[in-house]
Structure formats: structure tokens, C-alpha cells
């Protein structure tokens, strides 16, 4: 009896330890690498946020929209001769191939997003179904897509596709920033700014904002609500496809049928953290969550903690500030 208690206590004391010096020593690498993951979360988070803004609905099948894009990236690059070793290609050729993979992922993710909307949500909308029905339908769609991939690819992870070896570019506070981190963060930010401007400045963007603010009145203005809803899913899918390219760039091996789940929840957390429905909030939430997860990993000494920390963040935000940091939603976006 006594021995058991002691051994439990031993397990207990080694189970969780705060290694502050590890965190401080690795603070800048943790920050920059966290931003890289965060940029990917942010791109996927936009899909949750845009759909929520227009339909007040959390599209839990968005994680499968993302993983479909990741499969598209892996298949395209494998077909182009990429594999476990970085290719011997010129820079231009690599960029061309990555663009091709990106476009393939965007198309596949957009199509999957559109199918989810038409099959899982549109029939419910036509019937004026209660809120809970959408949630259940979302979960059903999510499992359906996962098991389509399962039946096709079995439970094995896809082989690695290495796109290029990261090269050091410059150093900040003694920490090397490499070409991969730079590519991901810059490309993601450019895409998010473009999305933000698109929503603010274009005719379709105005239609999206109008439906988000008042769907009936938007219809009275001649806005085709159904088309706006479809466009929103397509835009979210395109961004998830881009996110999928960067995700595979960062984590080249292990794309698997249920691999969207964790990333999806993190992206959703990022969206909630920044303020769901808020485009700029998704960027902020994504970057913050990426960094927080990495700090948790160094503080607690194991990569597994990244996920735990992320979910604790989700629960805390929902408890303390459910409207998120930037708080507002798509309906309040001003031009």
C-alpha cells in the first residue's frame, strides 16, 4: 500500500515538469516556428470564420476539406517525382511544381467544401432545420469523408514528399530563419490580406457582408443568397487548399485519412481565439496559437503537449472571452 503511493507520487512528479530554462533558451526558435504553424492554422481558420459569418454555423467538416487538399498535394507531387528525398531541380522548376500542387489542392478542397455545403447543409436550410441538425450533419459529413479516404488509402499514412531542404536566409536574435518558414509565413499573410481586401472591396465581397449582416434584406437588394453561400464555402476551401500545401511542406510525411482532425480543431481554436467571424482575428488567432503551442512544448518538454496546450487555450477562451480577442464578426467588417 505504502509502496504504491510512493510510486504514484514518483510517476506524478516526473509526469509534469515546467522547464522554464528550456523555454527561455529556445524562445526565439519556438516563436518563429510557432508562427509558421500559426500561419497554416490561420489559413484553415478562415474557412471556419467565413462560413460562420454568413451562416452562423460551424462547419466541422472543414477539417476534411483541409485533408482532401493535403492528399491532393501528396498525389500531385508524387506524380511529379517528389519523394522522401528533396528533388534535384532548379529553383524555378520547384516553384512551378509547388504552384501546380497548390492549385490542385485549392481545386480539390474547394470542390469538397462545395459538396459538403450542397449535401450536408443546403437540404437542412431548405427545410428550416433546427441548429442542432446542422451540427450532426457536419459531424456526419466529416466521418463520411474520412472513411472515403480510409477505404481508398487504408489506414496507412502516405509516404513523405519533401519539397525542398530549408536554407538559412537570415538571423534574428541569434536564431536562423529558414527559407521554408519565410515562404509559409509570407505566402499565408499575403493570402489573408488578399482575402480581407476581397471581402471589403469587391462586389462578391459586398454580397457576402450583406448576407452576413441581414440575409433577408440582402435578398431584397437582389443578392443571390445561395450563390453567396456557395462562394463562401469555395473561398474557404481555396484557403484550406493553400494551408494544406504549406502543411505538407512543413510536415512532409504522415498524411492520413483522419489527419485533418487535430489540425481542424487547432484552426477552429485559432478562429475562436481571434474572434470567430473576424478575418483579421483568424490571422491573429492562428499566429498566437502557433506560438503558444510551441511555448507549451518547450516548457513541458514534449511535442505532444502542443495539442494539450492548444485545447486548454480553446477552453479558456470559450470560458473567459467567447467573443475572442478582436471580438467582432464578419457582419461588422467595414470597407
Amino acid at each position: 500500500m505504502h509502496g504504491l503511493v510512493t510510486s504514484l507520487a514518483t510517476v506524478d512528479s516526473s509526469w509534469i515538469q515546467f522547464d522554464w530554462s528550456n523555454l527561455f533558451q529556445n524562445f526565439w526558435p519556438a516563436t518563429f516556428d510557432g508562427m509558421t504553424f500559426g500561419a497554416i492554422y490561420a489559413l484553415v481558420a478562415l474557412g471556419y470564420t467565413l462560413v460562420y459569418g454568413v451562416l452562423n454555423l460551424i462547419n466541422f467538416a472543414h477539417s476534411e476539406v483541409f485533408i482532401s487538399g493535403a492528399y491532393a498535394v501528396v498525389f500531385t507531387l508524387s506524380a511529379l517525382g517528389f519523394g522522401p528525398n528533396p528533388p534535384h531541380l532548379s529553383l524555378i522548376a520547384i516553384i512551378g511544381d509547388l504552384l501546380l500542387a497548390c492549385i490542385a489542392a485549392m481545386i480539390v478542397s474547394a470542390i469538397v467544401a462545395l459538396i459538403v455545403e450542397r449535401v450536408a447543409y443546403k437540404p437542412l436550410r431548405d427545410r428550416g432545420a433546427p441548429r442542432l441538425a446542422y451540427l450532426i450533419s457536419a459531424i456526419g459529413a466529416s466521418f463520411a469523408i474520412q472513411y472515403i479516404f480510409f477505404n481508398w488509402r487504408s489506414s496507412n499514412a502516405e509516404p513523405a514528399v519533401i519539397m525542398f531542404n530549408p536554407k538559412p536566409i537570415f538571423d534574428v536574435f541569434g536564431t536562423i530563419i529558414d527559407s521554408q518558414q519565410l515562404t509559409i509565413v509570407i505566402a499565408a499573410i499575403v493570402m489573408m490580406v488578399a482575402t480581407d481586401q476581397f471581402i471589403r472591396r469587391t462586389r462578391l465581397g459586398r454580397g457576402i457582408r450583406a448576407v452576413a449582416q441581414d440575409p433577408d434584406t440582402a435578398t431584397l437588394m437582389g443578392v443571390n443568397k445561395e450563390r453567396i453561400i456557395m462562394s463562401t464555402f469555395v473561398i474557404g476551401g481555396i484557403l484550406a487548399g493553400a494551408g494544406a500545401l504549406f502543411y505538407v511542406m512543413k510536415v512532409p510525411s504522415g498524411v492520413i485519412y483522419n489527419g485533418g482532425f487535430i489540425l481542424g480543431i487547432k484552426a477552429f481554436t485559432a478562429a475562436v481565439l481571434g474572434g470567430i467571424g473576424n478575418i483579421r482575428g483568424a490571422l491573429l488567432g492562428g499566429l498566437l496559437l502557433g506560438m503558444i503551442g510551441n511555448y507549451g512544448q518547450y516548457l513541458l518538454g514534449d511535442a505532444q503537449w502542443t495539442d494539450v496546450v492548444s485545447f486548454i487555450v480553446l477552453v479558456l477562451v470559450l470560458m473567459v472571452r467567447p467573443e475572442g480577442i478582436l471580438g467582432s464578426n464578419l457582419a461588422k467588417v467595414r470597407a
Partner: peptide, 27 residues
């Protein structure tokens, strides 16, 4: 046909000019 609905249905976050622009959305 064009309806000014009961309760007015102004888009609260859009400016006056943008609201008027929305009126011409379908044109």
C-alpha cells in the same frame, strides 16, 4: 420591384453610401 421593409433593414456596419450601393447591387 423594390421593397423598403418593415424595420428598415439597414446594414448596420455599412456606411450610408455603401447601403445605397447595395440598393443598386443587381443593376
Amino acid at each position: 420591384m423594390s421593397l423598403a421593409p418593415e424595420g428598415r433593414g439597414i446594414f448596420p456596419a455599412m456606411t450610408v453610401l455603401e447601403n445605397l450601393d447595395m440598393g443598386a447591387f443587381a443593376r
